[in-house]
Design a protein around this nucleic acid. Structure first.
Lengths: 402, 402
DNA sequence: ACACTTTTGCCGGGTGCTCGACAAAAGTAG
DNA sequence: CTACTTTTGTCGAGCACCCGGCAAAAGTGT
């Protein structure tokens, strides 16, 4: 029944997760454990490297207490973002601080062997470049541009990833690096990245990625929402009025993506005489001051806003973050979205709703992938298991010595 | 670190939750505990009444093992459904089996004192009528027709509940019955009820209530989604094309509710010469074979389906349940919904999507309220605490004896 | 330099739980 | 009825862990 230890080491560690330093006395008070008990537990956490002394605190008239805090540099984590035509990886510490990055122009359509081969090489290089050991690697997080069954880490019927269907991504990497591998949809990953970057205490947020396609990553109640088949957040093919007669690449008509994603915007701009091939060109035009492009982007914002308004009523997030390539058009896109949302949503749902642009930008995905991995590594259960393993090793050493 | 007891009693109990009987040997194998340890824990659970012997199993050549299973009649739970003009309560056991019910015509607008007064009386009466003690009552679950902050149990700016704003519902009841009181939105509660009634292992479902208004209760990843302000699932004021020029009671135009809820259907039927004052009348007409009413209902289904299609892309549930008064129109409503959904949603999201009518019907809400309460009572943490309390009582008795 | 305060490290005692064993109980097969 | 199998209940041993106390350490204030 475990009455003797109502608070487990993992839970004690959870208190240190916020990064702020604690004294032993504080921990003892909060957990209800004796100070001596806290000492022994902190010791094991220090031996694991997860916790480190954090200077000393000011004395309050007597011996100054020792402070302890999460040691972000104890372990390494790699966050990987696989896009349609590019790949990016970031080596981070346990605080999500980037220690090294790598880019590559690589087609996801080249297949899993080639892409994951790049990942394997890059992980090794990044770790070496920052003068750390590969044994410090604690986990790998990966975002893929398609539906992923998160529990198994396998892509499910991904439209733009030939050869990846049900491929065992974690298995491939674990064959080289014996660490947990967490895989998820790239938009979900971006949502986690934005949350990590500037919305740490927001439990209900939606990230909308506007690029070649349009998708959403939904965090609700602090948990990433993946849906029954791992395809939650598919905003792109929701019906909007202005797209009624527009054919979408999915074969249907009326899809948001058909009027508000990158290719559609470029086409709209061209129709009005300006030159643009991709969504990126449109963003450049907006930045260059093109009134035509601004109007087009703003209208796209209104279209997206129509869907965001529905979503606000359905999911009731407290923050909506706009990311992806088109977020580069900044306020113009946002203004259109806000226009629709505040017109269409219920007051109660929008009262405290914030609609903002991405701050993590192009790094949102790798940061999110890293965050996913960190979340796993620092979870109470995993920490608990690590402590247990250390104790078992101690016991074995003790037995061998006698 | 609690190495000696990696599995807590609450977790052991969790294995018995499914209602199927287990032998001690099976439990020992699954948990990794010694059989004797399992014995002592089962004993405390039996003393708590939560577990009971379950006959004997067939012998496999030796002494037949004893079976143990959850004892649903150990405790009582009351589920309460407060509607706009009615109230209903059901006394259930821990399996959600209804042991007694009570109805009342009572206006929620009469205010919390009066309504909760009825609840207090009804709880007492129901318990007495089933020849049980009030001390057997373990929890109360309540559904209210408006937004509720579930963590505190207080209604937040409810539109149709004057006098209820931020009223301390759990406090009122706990002053009489010293048990946990769980409060939530009535539509959320209905979603839990349907899940309990016939979709126990479905982790991603949406219940849509179509009555005077239209709302949705969303269960995703096995967890009820409440959103940032407790207003998630507000389908009624999502924009649909056919409502473009129709004014809604919310002051906006284009809301689903303005064309597809009970009052709108009645109006549409009247326009075509039939006689109907409420949504209930429309349902009666449909059942009576009125082609006009059937057409109206089917069109409402298409409108609702438009929103359900969006929602399917966003949330990706595996089951959508249609409930509320208008669900009485059965297949006609469903046909319209299916028509829109399968036309508008992505194949991947709808591949395994089921759209069905409520089976719990008018009892969905009270069943859901009961389920919410049961979920709390049987949660590992609460069971763990109960075991601990029992052990403490034992220790105290032991001390007094010597 | 000294008194005082507060934290720290260490150690012994005690507790409570888990484990494993063993004999008795309750069946089946012949 | 007897031999064999499997489960059950009980009990003592073991042990990991937690607690509390105490002396030493490390500061502050006079």
């Amino acid at each position: 029944m475990c009455f003797t230890s109502p608070v487990r080491t993992g839970e004690l560690f959870d208190l240190l997760r916020d990064g702020r330093p604690w004294t032993r006395a504080q921990l003892a008070e909060v957990t209800g454990l004796a100070r001596s008990t806290v000492t022994t537990r902190i010791d094991t956490l220090i031996r694991l490297g997860l916790v480190a002394p954090y200077g000393g605190a000011r004395s309050t008239g007597g011996r100054p207490p020792a402070l302890f805090a999460l040691n972000p540099s104890a372990k390494l984590v790699v966050g990987v973002d696989i896009g349609a035509t590019h790949a990016r990886a970031a080596l981070t510490d346990l605080d999500g601080k980037i220690l090294g990055e790598a880019d590559a122009q690589i087609e996801v359509a080249a297949g899993p062997e080639q892409v994951l081969g790049w990942v394997v090489d890059t992980v090794r290089d990044l770790v070496a470049a920052s003068n750390r050991q590969i044994t410090d690697l604690a986990a790998i997080g990966i975002g893929l541009p398609g539906p992923v069954e998160h529990s198994t880490g396998r892509p499910i019927n991904p439209p733009i990833m030939p050869g990846w269907d049900r491929y065992d991504v974690p298995g491939h990497l674990r064959a080289v690096y014996p660490v947990p591998v967490l895989v998820d949809n790239d938009v979900n990953i971006m949502a986690l990245g934005e949350r990590r970057a500037h919305l740490r205490d927001v439990d209900d947020l939606v990230l909308i990625k506007v690029a070649t396609g349009i998708g959403a990553g939904i965090v609700s109640g602090g948990v990433l929402q993946r849906g029954a088949r791992g395809t939650a957040g598919d905003l792109g093919h929701v019906r909007v009025r202005r797209a009624d007669d527009v054919l979408c690449r999915c074969g249907n008509t009326g899809c948001l993506e058909a009027v508000a994603a990158g290719p559609a915007l470029a086409a709209a701009v061209r129709e009005q005489g300006e030159d643009a091939k991709t969504g990126g060109d449109v963003v450049d035009l907006v930045r260059g001051g093109s009134l035509v492009a601004m109007a087009v982007v703003r209208q796209a914002g209104r279209d997206i806003g129509e869907v965001v308004a529905s979503m606000t009523n359905l999911i009731n997030p407290s923050v909506v973050v706009i990311g992806g390539q088109l977020a580069g058009a900044g306020e113009h896109l946002l203004a259109g979205i806000r226009e629709s949302v505040y017109q269409r949503s219920l007051p109660l749902a929008t009262e405290h709703l914030r609609i903002v642009t991405s701050r993590a930008g192009g790094e949102a995905a790798v940061l999110g992938a890293s965050a996913l991995a960190i979340e796993h590594v620092l979870s109470p259960d995993v920490v608990e298991a690590a402590c247990e393993a250390l104790a078992a090793a101690d016991a074995a050493a003790e037995a061998a010595r006698s």
